[in-house]
Amino acid sequence: MTLRVYAILYLVFLYAPIVLLPIFAFNDATVIAFPLSGFTTEWFRAIPETPALIRSVQTSLVVAVSSALLATLLGLCTARAGARYAFPGKRPVTGFIMLPLVLPEIIVAVALLVVLLALGLPLGPWTVVLGHTLLCTPFAVAILGSSFNNFDPALEEASYDLGESRWATFRLVTLPLVMPGIVSSLLISFTISLDEFIIAFFLTGTEPTLPVYLWGQLRFPQKIPVVMALGTILVALSVLLLSVAELFRRRGLARTGAKDTGGFV
């Protein structure tokens, strides 16, 4: 019983900042403090009237979609190699691909910056895409790895055995069974890229992504309420995308008939 109380308090701690976000986004005051002064939608209405913000949203969307696609594609290959084949150097190679998961982001950002500058390449959204793909690939590998591990390799062999080619087998058997994992990987990579700040901060050049733009706005107290409004939309979007990702993960489990273990065991 005491454990349950502790768990609930823990959730309150976890959710405190997120709950405050919409409260201040609709509060009719430029100072972010209690007591609340009144209800307004002014801050939300200000969003579409800020061209720099709109541009940063567009940049972020392009970056997030590209990173999600690239990371999922790389993750698909790596996860399949890891789940199906034994090959020389398997552990060190996959370990290296998963490295960004534990490397401090600032190191990744600095390292990429050094090389790009040394090569004289111009910074821009595409350099952020490279960094984000590097960062998202380990997540894609982890998600898709569990999809591949959850299904019996004999299913693919059965398909070859019944006369289908490798490609047809992939299309008829593998893809339908891994599809929930692919969707889930795309959504999660998209979310990570959309929220990522440090790599974008170092590599963004003259077209900031949304988090980099927001960072710039945090210095101006009068802009804070608009940031809160935008943050509310972002959080709502993230929660929506994650719920969809979770739904697909569960559907995938139901399809392969595996036991639901929360996706991490």
């Binding site: 062999e157 059965a158 019944l162």
Partner: peptide, 12 residues
């Protein structure tokens, strides 16, 4: 043609 130990019945 083969009958697999796990039967490999396509779950979808």
């Amino acid at each position: 043609n083969m009958v697999f130990q796990s039967y490999a019945i396509f779950p979808h």
